[in-house]
């Protein structure tokens, strides 16, 4: 039997996948970087190179600044809710691990993370609805006057944070549970022998060991919140002709510049800003990881 060269199979097998990556990932990413340096309106044949002008203009664009402000508030709002709540729930579920009912806890908390975004956002939209929603009726019982949740600029941010946290908690709980299962039982035993209560054991044994996991979940939560779009789209669009306050988030502003204002280069510059934010967050995570493992 004549033997074929050893590299033939792996190269042939990999080639189609590499082709897909080149066309669908590498090229568009490079193109985003390139377009961000040009002024282009899709239709025109003229596409002048403008250097960093797009970025300079972004820095004084009130809509972009509003978008980046809103997105940052939402991202950190979601973070501040998701991490402590997720950690507490994971600890509680972990203590009931192995019981049949813990399946219900995991499923019910995780379900919001996986169900389709749009119907889930529609469910919350009804809850927040000023006239028909149960939230206003509920706070009415406590003597708090009805609020127009989706119309007020500040409150609509709160709504977005609540909706996004509701979705992200399940993911945090799941990852924390994996982390908690990796804590060696012997460490708990030792803490217990030293007279620690289960809360103290959790606080001083599990939490320090979970720090890398917490960091990971924090970064994932922040990155995914910087990318929100569907939630803002659904909450802001009108019910019965009454438009809610539009929470301008980064992706929304970018798509509007590109597809409504036909400013492709400008929108690409916004995409680059989003990329930089994500890279900084990822880089920070790696750095913190390394520092920790060295310490």
């Amino acid at each position: 039997m004549r033997s074929k060269p050893k590299w033939l199979f792996p190269v042939l097998a990999l080639l189609p996948v590499l082709g897909l990556y080149a066309c669908l990932r590498v090229y568009p990413i490079a193109e985003t970087l390139r377009l961000s340096l040009f002024k282009w309106n899709i239709i025109s044949r003229r596409k002048p190179f403008v250097g960093f002008d797009n970025f300079v203009e972004l820095m004084s664009d009130p809509l972009f600044l509003e978008a980046i402000f809103n997105t940052t508030i939402v991202a950190f709002g979601v973070l501040v809710i998701t991490i402590p709540v997720g950690l507490a729930l994971a600890a509680l579920i972990n203590s009931r691990q192995g019981l049949r009912r813990s399946g219900f806890y995991e499923t019910s908390i995780f379900l919001p993370h996986v169900v389709s975004l749009v119907p889930a956002a529609m469910a919350w939209k009804w809850i927040f609805d000023a006239r028909l929603g149960p939230l206003n009726a509920l706070i009415g019982w406590f003597g708090i006057p009805a609020q127009s949740w989706l119309f007020d600029p500040a409150l609509s941010l709160v709504c977005l944070i609540v909706l996004c946290s509701w979705q992200s908690i399940g993911y945090a709980v799941l990852i924390f549970l994996v982390g908690l299962k990796n804590v060696p039982e012997a460490l708990y035993e030792a803490a217990r022998l030293d007279g620690a209560s289960s809360f103290q054991a959790f606080r001083y044994v599990a939490i320090p060991l979970l720090k890398p996991v917490m960091l990971y979940v924090s970064v994932i939560t922040l990155i995914s919140s910087y990318n929100i779009y569907a939630q803002a789209f659904v909450l802001a669009s009108d019910v019965q002709g009454a438009p809610g306050h539009l929470v301008r988030v980064l992706v929304l502003d970018m798509l509007e510049n590109s597809f409504r204002n036909y400013r492709v280069g400008y929108a690409a510059a916004e995409a680059v800003v989003l990329l930089v934010i994500v890279l900084v967050l990822t880089g920070a995570q790696f750095r913190l990881f390394r520092d920790r493992s060295r310490a």
Partner: peptide
Amino acid sequence: TSVVPFEVYMIPLYLN
């Protein structure tokens, strides 16, 4: 490439 959010390169992909 997995670090780059889809939204970042969506516009060039759309143009293609």
